[in-house]
Design a protein around this nucleic acid. Structure first.
Lengths: 222, 222, 222, 222
DNA sequence: TATGAATGAGGTTTCATTCAT
DNA sequence: CATGAATGAAACCTCATTCAT
């Protein structure tokens, strides 16, 4: 699971022994820094100069590899989506009972999103920009959203077992799960302030995690 | 309910006798345009020049009334929060049975958020900026979040009536409602693209509205 | 005739007595410098920074008045064409015999082009760019090319008087005149080098002027 | 006559035995592409990167063969001048009567310039740059301008035959011919737009060709 | 109160050129 | 000979903000 941190590759050296060029390394290094900056400051707020300054390379290389700021942002988005899709694809909940499987799946989603704030924030940023970069990215359009299949498999087993209600749409269900997990990270700043409650504390997180799982289960069960 | 559109007052002249300028009108006009711009392009993406150009007045006035871009954004946020708090405060669900009251409350929340995309987007923008402007605004800090009291009233009646479970925290409940309603608007762009499903269509909205209400009710009931 | 030098306005102060703002003055000042730079170095070779540096104002103002480098170039072109068209329009050759009138017109054209190298060079630059800026300029498209009417008037008188041949097209004639006058300035650098003859010397200019006039007259006469 | 197109050799392999690289071929390939780019966009407007991209080889080779951008441009100019001088040298008009010879020579010049727009444009570009590259090129300085001798020969025959006037300078005559032919290509873009007449149409070209020849003949004849 | 003009700092991007392999 | 990666300087342009009237 060490693959999911954006900076994971940047630290390693490639196979070429010496300290010379390594395009992939350079690319990854830029991407890692850019991910952080775009997530922190939004698309317009992020500065190519600042990204470059934190990089092992120069501003010029950003344009060499990514064409322009927008190209860089698209690459960052692609990278972030690719990572989560990869992880989702490796989730194996086949051995669990339907209810336990849903609990595991929702719990995992909650945890992943909670510990990958950058990803959540990039998605927010992209939504602020009406999804134009996503639309432009062929790579993202082609990513298979395997979690829907996983969800369908579990749900159907649950229905057959007689513990889940019939007639629920998987995408709708996925949306409920996403909404509950996403909001906890995305709206942390405003919600915490307005309700004077630190939503990022371990205590609150644990409680909220239970509520989310519970909410989904109650929605599914007869 | 036409009061909630930010631009509602901007076109009319105020009651001030002289044919001259009306400061409050000017302020409202600027706010209305700025709301649209910040909601559409984010804080950094919005341009003071563009806001001024769409205004009935000049750029100088923006600085005169709001000090700087940040001051303008804070005012926009305050205005947006004030509007929703005002509306929430007028909600009178006392005459309804607890379940019906929750259904009405959730339905209202869903509808309000759905038809006030600008508000949702401003909240997203503020979260991208870690809530710093909210923190700076005394006005927002002092706004009473009456919906929590409303919610508590209904919930307690429901518990007393024996139809709702005990032990549920109102803020946690409010968060569930918010999350489910908010996501539908905030993540529309990316979700629609990834799942090839137009989340803004009347059909989808009606279905989703039902799911959201249903989810909350099932979470509450014994 | 002091109006034709691009810098002629820049030196004077406008009517507003004090040293304050004068947009038209600023515009003219920028245009004058830009004319010189574009004429000297071509479109791509000219530097906005260098133009700004020679100006009484700043680079920012160039963008304020002319939008971008291209807008500045279009304005420069428009200005240059407007000047020559204005002068052509004031030419009054009605009192002269047809042959004398043609001699005066060609002589004037030769002299004007020779002493307005900037204009010639701007036209060269625009031709290198396939005339795209000209095409974009509504102002230039609408300039009336009065010289054609002047030419027609003289030519028709000459035909009636029996000294000019019939069947000559005025635009074709104008083209001959232009070509002969233009080349002398436009190709001075390469021609002088290749033929080891200084085409800008007073002696050469006088001789060439005679040749050009003579060539046109011989072409026209029976 | 297919030799005059700059790209004619570029596609073929040279005679050098091995299957490997052919320096002369590479050079020619680069020159052909560079000619097109410089002619199309001017010196500053042309991009070394774009030239390299269209080449069969890489950017490094441009620097290897031509030192820098300026060296490349000088080589392009030299190549273009060498081609036209070569062709002029092969013109054999000895068998023709003086007037016919002049007609042939002017017609040829008109046609050559018309179908070698790249050459015309390179000369324009060089003139915009005040001929500095030409001055730097020893090769061009040493090229013999045989057309002057050709012209002198014909002219003197014409004078002896009593059909041409005395006292005409060959270089001046050459300049008239050049001006009339050159302008038709060099100023096509602006002239066509201003006079709403397509100077590149077959019809216009034919008429203009006649005018040019006629103009020169009338200038020469008694 | 209102406005068009002005500004400096800094933003994104491009360019000719060179390096490492 | 050949190439993809790298670079620093400088190009064009934009932004929030202030000034002069």
């Amino acid at each position: 699971m060490h693959d999911i941190k954006p900076s994971s590759h940047a630290a390693k050296r490639s196979t070429s022994g010496r300290g010379g060029y390594d395009p992939e390394l350079t690319r990854q290094n830029i991407l890692a820094i850019a991910t952080k900056e775009f997530a922190e400051k939004g698309y317009s707020g992020a500065r190519v100069d600042e990204i470059a300054a934190q990089t092992n390379t120069s501003k010029r290389m950003i344009y060499y590899y990514f064409e322009d700021k927008e190209g860089l942002f698209v690459a960052v988005l692609e990278d972030a989506y690719r990572r989560i899709r990869q992880i989702e694809a490796t989730l194996d909940l086949g051995g669990l009972e339907p209810e336990a499987a849903i609990r595991a799946l929702v719990g995992f989603t909650f945890d992943y999103q909670n510990s990958n704030e950058d990803f959540i924030r990039l998605v927010m940023v992209e939504n602020i920009h009406q999804g134009v970069h996503l639309a432009r990215s062929r790579a993202i359009q082609e990513l298979n959203v395997s979690v829907i299949n996983t969800l369908r498999g579990i749900y159907e087993r649950g229905v057959k077992d007689g513990i889940f209600r019939k007639g629920i749409d998987e995408i709708d269900l996925h949306m409920t799960i996403s909404a509950l997990c996403f909001f906890n990270v995305s709206n942390r700043a405003t919600f915490s302030q307005i309700f004077k409650r630190d939503m990022a504390s371990a205590d609150m997180l644990a409680k909220r995690r239970e509520t989310v799982i519970d909410t989904v289960i109650r929605y599914l069960k007869k």
